[in-house]
Design a protein around this nucleic acid. Structure first.
Lengths: 133, 133
DNA sequence: CTAGGTGCAAATTATTTGCCGCGAG
DNA sequence: CTCGCGGCAAATAATTTGCACCTAG
């Protein structure tokens, strides 16, 4: 794969951004260094990084997909209000690898364990609204 | 909630269809009984069934969301090629209730465990293509 | 050089919404 | 009756694609 400035920057920002950015969030970040980049390029590169195994898609709530530069199996906590994603320390007994051995007709290639809920920020907003009523 | 023919049929088909249909698949099914129904109605009703707790969204690969009338926590096997979803028996050690206790700032409301892979059908297609080469 | 990558704009795909008339309760 | 609901078409949102030019190797 050819090494371009845009590809470099996209991967760099993806690695640096903890909360699993969406395509448009990466677009905004990269634009700070390279204002001429187009959103289409971001999508195309995220796609190719995924197929090279350098990134992974995270299916969230709220439409947009998010991306993750940590490709090893791990758990996520996903906010069902705002869609933000956070990595979770996995207790050894819940290691995703254990699930891979579960039998099925499927050729299992990966495992996804997500805790769904409300993140602290959204929780705070919710409580504020209640108080205002 | 008012009881309409369209709402009835949507829930009925959702319950009857094992592979977790998408909105358009439900639309096509319901149209066989009620040709005049509109896709918007299907979306609106699926949304309200979800908020009533009578259905659940399943986030898959391949754009479209899918829906599930089984609302109790359970695992899914999701095909990353065709997006089809199948229910999976959950090993006791991975019972969602156990996972809920994992600590985090999150107000955890649910757990999602998905095995990702290639379903038997897609696997067969893949092998056929190889032979043809 | 030249194939693969990029930017731009237009196209698709999935879903949501405004409006207005209708029918369940 | 009367409000919630449904149909239709238009609007959004997210992502993809065609094309002509550019550039890394």
């Amino acid at each position: 794969m050819r090494q371009t400035r845009q590809r470099q920057l996209i991967l760099e920002h993806l690695k640096r951004t903890a909360n699993h950015p969406s395509a448009t969030e990466i677009y905004d970040l990269v634009r700070q260094d390279l204002p001429s980049i187009s959103l289409a390029t971001v999508y195309r590169n995220l796609e190719s990084l995924c197929s090279l195994g350098l990134a992974k898609k995270v299916e969230t709530f709220g439409g947009q997909k998010r991306f993750d530069a940590i490709v090893a199996d791990h758990m996520h906590a996903i906010c069902t209000k705002c869609g933000k994603v956070r990595d979770i320390e996995t207790e050894p007994e819940f290691k995703p690898e254990k699930l891979r051995s579960i039998d099925s007709d499927f050729e299992i290639t990966g495992v996804r364990i997500d805790l769904l809920g409300i993140c602290p920020e959204c929780m705070r907003l919710q409580n504020q609204n209640k108080e205002e009523k």
